[in-house]
Nucleic acid binder design. Structure first.
Length: 630
DNA sequence: GGTCATCCCGCCCTCTGCTGGGATAAA
DNA sequence: ATTTATCCCAGCAGAGGGCGGGATGACC
């Protein structure tokens, strides 16, 4: 894979170093004594970094339940939930005392301590630091214990606030004094009043100029389990609530290699196998190895075709029950529990909603390493990479043309190799177009209302739609709007009138350089030159289609053919022949005029070099040395 | 420890729409 | 002959559907 996922939260968790590692000079001393980072994270920072999906997935039912309890005797083990402040409220101040003390204080210096967890509050806390202070390499996993104060519930606003007895407005956290104790045997027993925080360091949005610390996975043991993913709330709402054992001290088993924690040793041990490369269970059919018997069994089922979970509404069958449930939702029940809060989209699977959310946020986590393109999912990036590799995996079975996408091949086959090619009729005119997209182009070009009027080139009419203009201009097509003021002659085109006017003025602007003969039209001069001055010119012979008699002139042959009974030629019906006949007619006219002119010329100066034919502009003067006898 | 249900990631597919280049007809 | 307009076509990306399969929590 050539792409890299750039917005996935870093797996690197951090330990805030001892205070001697924190250069105080890099933090600006504020008047109130709190040290402020260079700049607070932007409103969107936290969301972009949130590793658990869309925020709206946290349903209102969760917000109405206490996340923190206030029982004094209860020992709280807190795993921090995905957190960020959407406002500029998070500041961090390392204190130069024993242990690391982290101060979270409201930017405006407000008196209220901040750890908003209730409704309306973003479920994330991000702390921006200058990279010079806490570099990624300097940070490791840490535990922070609340030294002072307890947990109080701010019931009046249904918000839950960590309040501190001695330091209102400040939440002081200190590095655990005995980490080994906490980690011993995969678990720990936090002391009364302590809280456990995990701090994650991720690069900020400013290209590495700052680091965002995300305090994550706030969770009170004994509460209803809340889905870490934002997409699971719909199913969770139906899950039965577990009996609360407030007095019971629970052990948490935490993986050293990743963030995994579990209260059950069996789950923990099973998880630890995921970090092992050992795969003792081997498929006897293909020798592929698996970590667990269950995985092996499912795999073997793919060989044997064993699909024990059959759909009652169709012929599909699946290896696992989950696949059957999902299939039934897609095909039969159409139940879509995962609903987008920003539009009407709903999906069967959480991952689909997560992918859909990117169409709202514009997030493109998958960056092409060869160009600036970034994709919203892996498949699009993979497909895009074909534009760099030139790979065309889809081949037409008929003409063997190759294509980069299957859809392109499908269109190709329909348009090129199918009998019933679909056509798209324009709703505004008679045009029929092969492709829907081309019909849209047609509509855009010809039937779109234009603010500025388009004027007819023949009259004063004006139109806002191009199609109407073109239709109107066609009405001028057979209109002989150019009328001669000297006779009754009229024509459609101005250039024809220009030539006609010369018959009244006697002008002949086209002069033969070989014999100085002048002509009113250029093509007459050309015909003359070929006939009298071009030795290589072979005159056309027009043969009678019936008797074969040859004529030098097409008109003579036609007159003969009528008498001979040959009638019009066979090919006269086709447009191409019609165009040829028009050309012949022009040539006939030229020859006829040439004949008349030739009678008047007594001398043909064949000895003169043909040279260049110089047209004389209308009303102009012939070049020096060239005489006009017309 | 085994099993089941669920969650979640990843892969592949289709449908859709836009764009630009080449071919062709019309002006 | 040249220019302009239109059509045809392939390339490419956005969005979403469907499924395979690994990981994990809960239960027995």
């Amino acid at each position: 894979m050539a792409g890299t996922e750039i917005s996935v939260p870093s797996e690197q968790f951090t330990k805030i170093k001892a205070p001697e590692l924190v250069p105080e000079v890099l933090l600006e001393e504020e008047e109130d004594g709190a040290c402020r980072g260079r700049e607070p994270p932007g409103p969107g920072d936290g969301q972009a970094l949130c590793p658990y999906g869309p925020l709206q997935a946290k349903g209102p039912e969760r917000e109405q339940e206490p996340l923190l309890t206030t029982e004094e005797s209860e020992k709280h083990v807190l795993t921090l939930q995905t957190v960020h402040f959407s406002e500029d409220v998070s500041w961090l101040s390392p204190q130069p005392q024993d242990g690391v003390q982290v101060t979270i204080q409201q930017a405006g210096g407000g008196p209220q301590p901040l750890l908003w967890l209730g409704e309306g509050a973003p479920p994330c806390v991000t702390i921006s630091l200058q990279e010079e202070v806490y570099s990624l390499q300097e940070m490791q996993v840490m535990e922070l214990h609340v030294l002072e104060g307890g947990l109080a519930r701010a019931s009046e606003e249904s918000k839950f606030v960590v309040s501190l007895a001695e330091s209102p407005g400040l939440l002081k956290l200190e590095k655990g004094q005995d980490e080994d104790r906490l980690l011993a045997e995969g678990g720990f027993e936090p002391q009364a009043g302590e809280q456990l925080f995990l701090v994650e360091a991720t690069p900020g949005d400013e290209g590495g100029e700052e680091i965002v610390l995300t305090i994550s996975n706030l969770h009170v043991e004994g509460q209803e389990d809340t889905p870490a993913s934002g997409q699971g709330h719909a199913d969770k709402a139906d899950s039965p609530k577990k009996p609360k054992k407030a007095k019971e001290v629970k052990r948490t088993f935490r993986c050293d290699s990743c963030m995994f924690t579990s209260s059950r040793i069996s789950s923990f041990n099973r998880h630890m196998k995921t970090h092992s490369t050992e795969k003792p269970h081997m498929c006897h059919l293909c020798l592929k190895a698996f970590r667990t018997v269950t995985l092996l069994r499912n795999h073997v089922n793919t060989h044997t075709g064993t699909r024990p979970y059959k759909c009652g509404d169709c012929d599909m069958a699946f290896v696992t029950s989950g696949e059957l449930v999902r299939h039934r939702r897609y095909k039969h029940t159409h139940e879509k529990p995962f609903k987008c809060s920003m539009c009407k989209y709903a999906s069967v699977e959480a991952s689909k909603l997560k992918r859909h959310i990117r169409s709202h946020t514009g997030e493109r986590p998958f960056q092409c390493l060869l160009c600036s393109y970034a994709s919203k999912d892996t498949y699009k990036l993979k497909r895009h990479m074909r534009t760099h590799s030139g790979e065309k995996p889809y081949e037409c079975h008929v003409c063997h043309a190759r294509f980069t996408q299957s859809g392109t091949l499908k269109i190709h086959i329909v348009q090129k190799h199918s009998e019933n090619v679909p056509k798209y009729q324009c709703p505004h005119c008679a045009t029929v177009i092969a492709r829907k997209s081309d019909l849209r182009v047609h509509l855009r070009n010809l039937h779109t209302y234009k603010a500025t009027e388009m004027k007819c080139r023949c009259c004063s009419a004006a139109f806002h739609e191009r199609y109407a203009l073109i239709q109107h201009q066609k009405t001028h097509k057979n209109e002989k709007r150019f009328k001669c003021e000297h006779c009754s002659y009229a024509c459609e085109q101005e250039r024809h009138m220009t030539v006609h006017i010369r018959t009244h003025t006697g002008e002949k602007p086209f002069t033969c350089l070989s014999c100085s003969k002048c002509f009113r039209q250029k093509q007459l001069l050309n015909a003359h030159f070929k006939k009298y001055h071009d030795a290589s010119f072979i005159p056309a012979v027009h043969g009678c289609p019936k008797c074969g008699k040859g004529f030098s002139r097409w008109s003579n042959m036609q007159r003969h053919s009528v008498k001979c009974g040959a009638g019009p030629g066979k090919a006269a019906a086709s447009g191409k022949v019609r165009r040829t006949k028009r050309k012949l007619a022009v040539r006939k006219e030229a020859i006829q005029e040439d004949e008349v002119a030739a009678k008047k010329v007594s001398t043909v100066r064949l000895e003169q070099c043909p040279g260049e034919v110089v047209p004389v502009p209308y009303g102009g003067v012939a070049p020096e040395g060239v005489t006009c006898d017309g």
